[in-house]
Amino acid sequence: TTYKLIANGKTLKGETTTEAVDAETAERVFKEYAKKNGVDGEWTYDDATKTFTVTE
C-alpha cells in the first residue's frame, strides 16, 4: 500500500511517499524521515486517503 506524507515544517515543506504493509509501518518510516530532516511537529493521519501530515 502506498502512504503519503505531507510535511509542513519550518525547514522542510513538501510531499513524499512510501510503500508499507500497514499504516503503523508507514508512520515509523515517516517519523524517521522527519527526524532526519529536523521536522518535529503535530502529526495527523487520514485513513481514507492514506495520508500523514506533520505540521510545525
Score class of each variant (00 low, 15 high):
residue 1 T to S: 10
residue 1 T to G: 08
residue 1 T to R: 10
residue 1 T to N: 13
residue 2 T to N: 05
residue 2 T to A: 05
residue 2 T to Q: 10
residue 2 T to P: 04
residue 2 T to I: 14
residue 2 T to H: 08
residue 2 T to K: 12
residue 2 T to W: 13
residue 3 Y to I: 01
residue 3 Y to F: 11
residue 3 Y to W: 05
residue 3 Y to G: 01
residue 3 Y to Q: 01
residue 3 Y to N: 01
residue 4 K to D: 02
residue 4 K to C: 06
residue 4 K to N: 05
residue 4 K to Y: 15
residue 4 K to P: 01
residue 5 L to P: 01
residue 5 L to S: 01
residue 5 L to V: 03
residue 5 L to I: 03
residue 6 I to Q: 05
residue 6 I to P: 01
residue 6 I to L: 07
residue 7 A to H: 13
residue 7 A to Q: 07
residue 8 N to S: 09
residue 8 N to D: 09
residue 8 N to E: 09
residue 9 G to I: 10
residue 9 G to L: 14
residue 9 G to D: 04
residue 9 G to R: 04
residue 10 K to A: 11
residue 10 K to Y: 11
residue 10 K to M: 12
residue 10 K to R: 13
residue 11 T to P: 05
residue 11 T to K: 10
residue 11 T to Q: 10
residue 11 T to V: 12
residue 11 T to R: 07
residue 12 L to W: 15
residue 12 L to M: 12
residue 12 L to D: 05
residue 13 K to C: 15
residue 13 K to Y: 12
residue 14 G to E: 10
residue 14 G to L: 15
residue 14 G to P: 07
residue 14 G to Q: 12
residue 15 E to Y: 13
residue 15 E to G: 07
residue 15 E to R: 08
residue 15 E to V: 15
residue 15 E to W: 14
residue 15 E to A: 08
residue 16 T to M: 14
residue 16 T to E: 05
residue 16 T to W: 15
residue 16 T to L: 15
residue 16 T to N: 06
residue 17 T to N: 05
residue 17 T to A: 07
residue 18 T to F: 12
residue 18 T to V: 15
residue 18 T to C: 15
residue 19 E to R: 13
residue 19 E to A: 07
residue 19 E to M: 14
residue 19 E to T: 14
residue 19 E to P: 04
residue 20 A to R: 02
residue 21 V to R: 12
residue 21 V to D: 12
residue 21 V to T: 12
residue 21 V to H: 12
residue 21 V to K: 13
residue 22 D to F: 03
residue 22 D to L: 04
residue 23 A to N: 06
residue 23 A to K: 15
residue 23 A to P: 11
residue 24 E to Q: 13
residue 24 E to N: 09
residue 24 E to H: 10
residue 25 T to I: 07
residue 25 T to S: 13
residue 25 T to L: 05
residue 25 T to M: 11
residue 25 T to R: 06
residue 26 A to I: 02
residue 26 A to N: 00
residue 26 A to P: 00
residue 27 E to I: 08
residue 28 R to Y: 07
residue 28 R to M: 10
residue 28 R to L: 10
residue 28 R to A: 11
residue 28 R to V: 08
residue 29 V to Y: 15
residue 29 V to R: 09
residue 29 V to E: 07
residue 29 V to Q: 08
residue 30 F to E: 00
residue 30 F to I: 02
residue 30 F to T: 00
residue 30 F to L: 04
residue 30 F to Q: 00
residue 30 F to K: 00
residue 30 F to C: 01
residue 30 F to S: 00
residue 31 K to L: 06
residue 31 K to S: 04
residue 31 K to P: 00
residue 31 K to V: 06
residue 32 E to C: 09
residue 33 Y to S: 02
residue 33 Y to W: 15
residue 33 Y to I: 07
residue 33 Y to L: 08
residue 34 A to Q: 02
residue 34 A to P: 00
residue 34 A to E: 01
residue 35 K to L: 13
residue 35 K to M: 13
residue 35 K to T: 09
residue 35 K to N: 09
residue 36 K to H: 09
residue 36 K to P: 02
residue 36 K to I: 11
residue 36 K to T: 09
residue 36 K to W: 08
residue 37 N to E: 06
residue 37 N to H: 15
residue 38 G to V: 03
residue 38 G to C: 07
residue 38 G to L: 05
residue 38 G to Q: 06
residue 38 G to M: 06
residue 38 G to I: 04
residue 38 G to S: 06
residue 38 G to A: 05
residue 39 V to C: 11
residue 39 V to Y: 10
residue 40 D to E: 14
residue 40 D to Y: 14
residue 41 G to S: 02
residue 41 G to C: 03
residue 41 G to W: 06
residue 42 E to L: 13
residue 42 E to P: 04
residue 43 W to S: 00
residue 43 W to N: 00
residue 44 T to F: 11
residue 44 T to Y: 09
residue 44 T to A: 10
residue 45 Y to T: 00
residue 45 Y to Q: 00
residue 45 Y to M: 01
residue 46 D to Y: 04
residue 46 D to L: 04
residue 46 D to M: 04
residue 46 D to E: 06
residue 46 D to Q: 04
residue 47 D to T: 08
residue 47 D to Q: 10
residue 47 D to A: 14
residue 47 D to P: 14
residue 48 A to K: 12
residue 48 A to H: 10
residue 49 T to K: 06
residue 49 T to G: 04
residue 49 T to I: 06
residue 49 T to F: 05
residue 49 T to V: 05
residue 50 K to F: 09
residue 50 K to H: 11
residue 50 K to R: 12
residue 50 K to Q: 09
residue 50 K to E: 03
residue 50 K to L: 07
residue 51 T to M: 04
residue 51 T to P: 00
residue 51 T to D: 00
residue 51 T to Q: 03
residue 52 F to S: 00
residue 52 F to N: 00
residue 52 F to W: 06
residue 52 F to E: 00
residue 53 T to M: 09
residue 53 T to A: 05
residue 53 T to H: 08
residue 53 T to S: 06
residue 53 T to E: 05
residue 53 T to I: 08
residue 53 T to D: 02
residue 54 V to N: 01
residue 54 V to E: 00
residue 54 V to R: 01
residue 55 T to A: 06
residue 55 T to W: 11
residue 55 T to C: 07
residue 55 T to M: 08
residue 56 E to K: 05
residue 56 E to T: 07
